[in-house]
Design a protein around this nucleic acid. Sequence first.
DNA 1: ACCTGAACACCGTTCAAGT
DNA 2: ACCTGAACACCGTTCAAGT
Lengths: 244, 244
Amino acid sequence: MTTRTAPADNQPRTPPRRGRPRKGASTLTRDAVIEAAISVIDDAGVEAVSMRTVARRLGVDAKSLYNYVDGKDNLLDAVAEHILTGVALPEPTGSLDTDLRAIGRTFRAGTLAHPRAGALVLTRQLSSTAGLRPVATVLSVLRAAGCGPEEAVHLLRTLLAAVVGTLLREVAAGPTFGVVGPEATAKRQRDLEASGLPVLVEVAPHLARFGHDEEFEYALDLIVNAVTRKVHESSPASSQAPSA
Amino acid sequence: MTTRTAPADNQPRTPPRRGRPRKGASTLTRDAVIEAAISVIDDAGVEAVSMRTVARRLGVDAKSLYNYVDGKDNLLDAVAEHILTGVALPEPTGSLDTDLRAIGRTFRAGTLAHPRAGALVLTRQLSSTAGLRPVATVLSVLRAAGCGPEEAVHLLRTLLAAVVGTLLREVAAGPTFGVVGPEATAKRQRDLEASGLPVLVEVAPHLARFGHDEEFEYALDLIVNAVTRKVHESSPASSQAPSA
DNA sequence: ACCTGAACACCGTTCAAGT
DNA sequence: ACCTGAACACCGTTCAAGT
């Protein structure tokens, strides 16, 4: 099924050269390699990434990449880190509810800036500091709202798991949870109605359709409400103002 | 870094044979292929799966698998489906709270029956009915509790996203969210304290450690409480009994 | 310092033969 | 009906050369 043909990649392939680059324009850097990988992903998905396809974008031999990147796995980690570093986190306002929602939304926007790299960013386990920035931001907001350190960590983990789960479904959107577009929705609804399970028939119109924004907002609302309630019930401090 | 050496796989490799099997013992079936793939995953992880390694387990040539499976991608889908089909879902008791927790726990146990296949099961988008069983079960429980069809679908999606997010972190456990084991925890704590970000220093002891069961239960509790509250506030019906 | 040729040990998959 | 040999177009990666 997955036949191997020419990779979806047509860059101007310069005739073979050797030694170091001719001019002083040594355009090859670690960042250039990472960005080339991202452009391959944007165009053809993660599975299209190979040392050879990335190198081709740069008009360079695959083995040259090893001067900047410690193998393919390391390159993919670097891609995830690069994208994660690019997520712009909002300034806290002092309202737990507002801040958690804002963090959730900007995190979504940032990780979906390159949708086809989404699974990478959400799934790769980063040992670096890149992954810690959003973590630190959420923790700050929780602590500022009067949450104890242990509970803050628990709530952070729950919140992030929910957000990541939601986003992962969004980037990998499969039929189990509904499809996008009217014709696909109609087909899916017919399939569900033919499934034989009465509950599925009952909810078919709703289960068949899926709106990314709407679903994200629903999930975010539910989870942020739950977190906020938990924080306020365990620390009966301020209600809205920072510490007036 | 990832050097290719002999795959971690030492099965009795019979001398080459040709034509169909000698005895009537045509042991090769689609299920046998799927189970061989699972055993490769259990032993060496998903990335160790190749048509060749799976075939080796069965004492057969890689190309023979194509008689039972439509390529590698289809094989991995089949693995995910096989494992998902094996999750034993509990009988509903009539209590929304109890039932959602029970479903969450058995879903966890089922998808983690083969931990190294976890990401596959949680991530692959199944077009088949296998993925619909848990979906239908959750929907039934929500509907029985008086939840309307549209809200049931929203709540199902939120609940499953949170559970999947939590389990995905569990199977792919990386350092960002804490590590397992006392010595790794100690090292992680030192790293966090050296990070420079004050919040991280503050919560380091809690962020460094990670207990799978404890974290799952915390997340499950938070989310199930939120779902239950939402259902009860929008349909002020029974409190505990089915419909007495 | 940074590049490539040659080379190695892998891949997934097709197709025409074999029994 | 089900298996394999030969073959093809790919992989990631090492290492010794080249400039």
